[in-house]
Design a protein around this nucleic acid. Sequence first.
RNA 1: GGGCGUUUAGCUCAGUGGUAGAGCGUUUCGUUGACAUCGAAAAGGCCAUAGGUUCGAUCCCUAUAACGCCCACCA
Length: 708
Amino acid sequence: MDELNKPYNPKDHEDKLYKEWEEAGYFNPDNFPVSQDTGSKIQVPRFCMVIPPPNITGSLHMGHALNSTIQDILVRYHRMKGFKTLWLPGTDHAGIATQYVVEKELKKEGKTRFDLGREEFLKRVWEWRDKYGHIILDQFKKLGASCDWSRTRFTLDPEYTKAVETAFLHYHKKGLIYQANRVVNWCSRCATSLSDLEAEYKEEEAELIFIKYPLDSARGKPLTDASDYIIVATTRPETMLGDAAVAVNPKDERYKNLIGKKINLPIQNREIPIIADDSVDMEFGTGAVKVTPAHDVADFEIHERHNLPIYQVIDEKGRMTEEAKFCVGLKTKECREKVVEELDKLGLIEKREKFIHNIAKCYRCDTVIEPLISKQWFLKMKDLAAKAKAEVENGNIKFHPENFAKTYLDWLGNIRDWSISRQLWWGHKIPLDGVDDVLDTWFSSALWPFATLGWPRAESRGSDLETFYPTQVLSTARDIINLWVSRMIFSGLEFTGKKPFSDVIIHATVLNKEGKRMSKSLGTGIDPLKLIEEFGADATRFALIWQAMGGQDIKWQQEAVMAGKKFLNKMWNATRFVMKQNENYKSPYFAEAPQGKQFTISKPDAKEKINQDILEKFEETKKTTEELIKTYEFGPALHLLYEFFWHDFCDNYLEESKKMESAETSETLLYVLTGTIKLLHPFIPFITEAIWGKINKENKKHLIVESW
RNA sequence: GGGCGUUUAGCUCAGUGGUAGAGCGUUUCGUUGACAUCGAAAAGGCCAUAGGUUCGAUCCCUAUAACGCCCACCA
């Protein structure tokens, strides 16, 4: 027999085996499964998952590693169970994220995208994509992901772009898309609008400034009497230049007699009214609110109710407009200082207070978001959301763990129309003549489960769309439940009339030892590629799944990798013992296998109780493992297999077996060992395949396509 | 401001309506031909706090606290 080196060394096997699998075409469901007898393709049930397409700017982090392992377990399990199994990979063009990365690169050359112009800039982004866009997929391969790479998709592929256009035109024709002037989240650095979900709120200390607004009747007089002015509080004093009114609550006794009176807006010297509006909170600040319709969502709504004029004082690049005569061209922050200084000079600052509040920032470049009025495209969400909501409520789509359904349902239940246009260059152009805007990157990823399978081409017999859609399971991170999952569900229902998948797995978040989010910029992240390099992909996968219990967040423990590494070694050494026993007893399995004959190890008809017992325990373990995989409890499944293999099989049975060596015993050892190797293959594919190759060296068939 | 989750051995986590388990760590013993990346054994927990339901709760209910996450237009 081949020498099994004493310690198991993943480097001797992992890359080599991956290449063997890939070259044999095992990942491609066009090739497998085939009939055991005739070798021809057969009709079998299908199993399909689409990978959450990583951004082309991405590089493998622990979340990807965990998610890929989870998906690979399901895919390998179903493949071994004889399903026609497709795991479809690909990448997302990631409009804003990629554009940001390339713009940063340009900045080093002292240029902006505007210097290059649209066409030239896009050329540059494509170059970037061709150079770096595939890196993350190679990293998935390192981990052992058995995706069908021949079907790799990209959201800006011509065919995919066709799907996006079809979707847009469908909505448009149906009257679900409209244009409107609204106050939207605006990132001045990216110079684009953002959806509500793309704004990230961070708690920061700010200053709440109380400003005296003189009543018109007191114009020109020193403000000695409190009845000569009204005080408003704001964290953004520069926006006062765009004020259209001051609003108070109609129930507020303090201001009742002021409603309808006029104010002389300082600096601008413009007359604005004091109005009554129910939305004003009497408890906050002074109970009087300055209303800036162009730069605040709530104020815009007040403007609609009271028919106020709009004064836009901040432009698309975050600079003050002509309207803000006092500070034209200044950045908002500079203008803020100048305004406060001026108000102070005029004796109009009542007081300044420290104030902790949430500041909205761009989720890609972290720039403070300025709400800004602008003309955008919107998708009407009401009906789409209702259908998507029903699909989960009636149990057609299930979340695992199920409490995440609440996140989904709550969002859809309070949904507002989706602003789908972006003023970026990298993305799908809105298909109407003369429009420069592109679509929200999530508009295209919402079509992923069916656009990757060929939609909107007609469903011909045998097409991927017909064969694999709807898919079965989607596994992803919890922070994109609304951003992505919900949108795939309503898109799937709208365009195919079918749910895109039946089960949604929301995997654990991998935190660092301190229980904090791993952050690349803070250097608190653990690089899975380094783990793979040092300990191998199997040990890395083991550690991830070992710690993933019940969807709870994982506080990463490096010790789990060591536990995995030791477990692999244990398996390796047990194999050597089992093979030796079988050779000693001239087991038929180690005789020359007849050419082309299937290598199967059948269950021994054991007479000895000790052998019967371990066989029984094995069957029990197999049954429970399958149940756990079917309910997506991968952590418990791995713990069970670990327990069984190490303690029941090695510590107890194998030790006892030494006292009663026999042909029956050696065959039992081999049966249980190989059986357990199969159960473990989805979790730790490399070592199990390597062991299989040692035992079954005459046969060319790999474990990856053996049946359970 | 809402909502959700967590709180069990030194650490990270399982688990069950009847007085608790794993991995790692610690201690002791073991160099018998699968494995020292090992084996055998041991120590170590009033299962966050306070009430309630129950014959009985770590597990069910209520409240509290701490930590974490998500959502939300309080200027």
